[in-house]
């Protein structure tokens, strides 16, 4: 059988995966295990990318999100297991961050721009703004609002899916519902990455 471009790609990816898994097999430290697992996830994304069609791009997104989601849960479990709680979470101790109004203006701009973009990338942009805001101000709000928003976005998405499947003539409504659902979902989830630590209020 001939060596096509696909096989050469697989050769590189599986070599990388082999290195990653060998490192994982030798590692004994729990935190490093988590980081290495996250690293070998890249290999699975690369195998999907080698398909090279539009379908590949659509399959990468779930693959990527599954990795991020499990990482979120496992890192929280790691914190609980090691008892790292009790570290006070303050804002960044930098004078310009604490004093200037830029810490409100820049997140505000990013959130508005993200909402205009909508969809997955828009959610990422808006979440970046929120992460910056939470980092520079001590996060005092409670998570219940964000948890509620993530639940609503999930329901919105599932509703949009059922419209697509059972009433395809309303595809436009479903498209907008799914776009708003993913926007809310990505904003709430990504903005909490790195914020959920320290002392809960």
């Amino acid at each position: 059988m001939a060596w096509n471009e696909y096989s050469f790609g697989l050769l590189v990816v599986f070599l990388a995966a082999l290195v990653g898994f060998l490192a994982l097999a030798r590692e004994r430290d729990d935190l490093h295990k988590l980081l290495l697992v996250d690293l070998v996830e890249v290999a699975s994304i690369a195998v999907i990318a080698l398909l090279g069609t539009d379908l590949a791009e659509a399959l990468i997104l779930p693959g990527l999100v599954v990795g991020i989601a499990e990482l979120l849960a496992l890192s929280q479990l790691f914190i609980a297991k090691e008892g790292i709680a009790g570290v006070p979470a303050r804002g960044l101790n930098i004078e310009v961050v604490q004093k200037s109004p830029a810490t409100v203006i820049i997140p505000g701009f990013l959130v508005v721009y993200g909402i205009i973009l909508s969809g997955f990338t828009g959610g990422g942009v808006a979440a970046l703004g929120l992460v910056f805001y939470f980092m520079s101000h001590r996060f005092l709000g409670d998570f219940h609002v964000l948890e509620l928003a993530s639940g609503i976005s999930w329901a919105l998405w599932v509703a949009a899916f059922f419209v697509f499947m059972f009433a395809p003539e309303f595809w436009f409504l479903a498209l907008m519902g799914a776009a708003v659902g993913i926007l809310l979902k990505v904003i709430t989830k990504i903005s909490l990455v790195g914020v959920m630590w320290g002392e809960p209020q």
């Binding site: 539009d54 379908l55 659509a58 399959l59 997104l61 779930p62 999100v65 599954v66 991020i68 989601a69 499990e70 979120l72 849960a73 890192s75 929280q76 479990l77 914190i79 609980a80 998570f143 948890e147 993530s150 639940g151 976005s153 999930w154 998405w157 599932v158 949009a160 899916f161 697509f164 499947m165 395809p168 595809w171 479903a174 498209l175 799914a178 659902g181 993913i182 979902k185 989830k189 909490l192 959920m196 809960p200």
Partner: peptide, 29 residues
């Protein structure tokens, strides 16, 4: 592809995110 023809994939994917988030939020609280 994500919303229409392979919509079920993308329903499972936010469900995974939702479940992971629920675990993280529960442990945090």
């Amino acid at each position: 592809i994500l919303y229409n023809t392979r919509g079920l994939d993308t329903v499972v994917e936010p469900t995974i995110l939702f479940i992971s988030f629920a675990i993280a939020a529960y442990i945090f609280h």
